[in-house]
Simulated scan of single mutants.
Amino acid sequence: MKTLKTISLACLIFGAAQAAVAGPIYLTSGSEPWGTNANIDNFDAAFGAGNWDRAVFGDAGVFSDTSDFVYIDGGDGNTFDFETWYNSNRSTVETFVASGGSVFVNAARWGGTDNFDLGFGATLTETGNYSTECTLTTNDFAAAGTVFTGSGCSHDVVAGAGFNTLAYSTAGNILLEKSYGLGHVMLGGMTTTNFHSGNGFDIRVNMLKYANDGVTAVPESSSIVLFGLGLLGLGLARRNKKA
């Protein structure tokens, strides 16, 4: 019985460490960009209703040790709130990714700052060219083809050194990615999917899943300690069994 109790305790400790990881987070202003629930519908389709969190600029704990993937939308009427918040939290976002997190920043802005600094060595520029055709450079997101169209599938273009291009329009690159430290970042200037053709919804869902898969499981310090205790417990159990 002593051996079984020791093993059970180790399993419980290890399970507690594993349970500390949170689900995806969608971060924007209090109101939805473009007055549509498109982003919410995208998240429900990608991860299932109730399996992700909606956060507002200024909320605490968004980039805590238990967060893993954060999608940030700064489009349309949320442009000013997005830029103000990002200017104050740029280093926090970079540190989160460098530590193993995944961030997808997407902002089809309305009246945004030229060459806005997104960190990670990248800038965002509103072109005034509301592209009606956007093209993927990868099949990772493909849904009924690699082209998605609409009344304006993107507003901004993204530029930076060391990035891979994932999508582009006639105005320039509209979605980039790169590894940063231990994590992964995606930067885009696309509109919400209510402006896209039929396959645009599924393409965005695939983008969110892809970004979430970019999370690196870097346990917080307390989890590392608990994991070590679990291994110690298993070791003691084996010694007791031999005795």
Rank of each mutant, 00 (worst) to 15 (best):
G101E: 07
G128N: 03
T138M: 02
D73F: 15
L234D: 00
F195W: 13
R109D: 10
T146D: 11
G111S: 09
N139D: 15
I72P: 01
D53F: 12
P24D: 05
L124E: 03
T125H: 07
A122L: 02
G172L: 10
D140Q: 09
F195S: 15
I25C: 13
A10M: 00
C153K: 05
G74C: 01
W34C: 03
G160Q: 07
Y26I: 09
E94A: 12
I203M: 06
N206G: 03
N89G: 09
W85E: 05
A161R: 00
G181H: 11
N78V: 10
I40K: 12
T135C: 01
R90T: 04
G150L: 08
D65Y: 11
S91Y: 02
T192C: 10
T36G: 04
L124W: 09
V70I: 12
G112V: 06
L182C: 03
G152A: 14
I40Q: 11
G188F: 01
G128H: 08
G119W: 02
A46W: 07
G152S: 11
A17Y: 01
Q18D: 10
M207K: 03
G50E: 09
D202E: 15
T138V: 09
K2A: 01
S99T: 11
C11R: 05
K242C: 03
T6I: 00
L208I: 07
G181C: 04
G111Q: 08
T28D: 12
F14L: 14
P219T: 05
K5D: 12
C153L: 03
Q18S: 08
L9Y: 08
T193S: 14
N106G: 02
G23S: 06
L136Q: 07
E177R: 10
Y26S: 14
A20R: 13
V93G: 04
I72W: 00
A45Y: 11
D68G: 14
F82P: 04
T92F: 04
V56F: 03
G75P: 04
L234M: 08
L234A: 02
Y26K: 11
G61S: 03
V70M: 07
V225R: 06
F82K: 00
L176Y: 04
V21F: 10
M190I: 11
L187C: 01
T165E: 15
F227L: 14
L229N: 07
G30Y: 07
F47S: 13
D117H: 07
S8Y: 06
N194A: 15
V103C: 02
S222F: 14
F227N: 06
Y86K: 09
N42G: 01
T191E: 09
G188M: 05
E94R: 05
L232Y: 05
D68C: 14
D76F: 11
S197H: 08
